[in-house]
Amino acid sequence: MFKNPEELKYTKTHEWVKEEDGLYVVGLTDFAQDALGDIVFVNLPSVGDPVTAGEAFSDVESVKAVSDVFSPVTGVVAEVNEAIVDDPASVNSDCYGSWLIKVADVTGTEELLDAKAYEEVCANEA
């Protein structure tokens, strides 16, 4: 019931990641945005901040909750998506288009799942 595009990789903590022009693009999955409900704000890191695989690099706020977002990779933040700061609703409406950060100088990754394996994770949590 959740959309999990085949071409992406996933974490057990509900982030997606894809490699694009040497950078790792990171966002929230359909399952995550649905569980969070209406997202009202995304706290993004700054360009140049180090991120570590498996550790929180951001948090997203709904009206009554705040949840950490974990990095699938270890590296340095190369770009942040300022557009979602102005329009956090886009994470709900288009979670695979509304990426959060792009990471450069990646030296390691979290255990990454393919779409099928990730679907099972979702099924178990639903």
Binding site: F41, S62, V63, K64, A65
Partner: peptide
């Protein structure tokens, strides 16, 4: 509003 900044939601953070 902007309650997600506050202790009752963010707790130790």
């Amino acid at each position: 509003t902007l309650q997600a900044r506050e202790q009752h939601i963010r707790r130790e953070k």
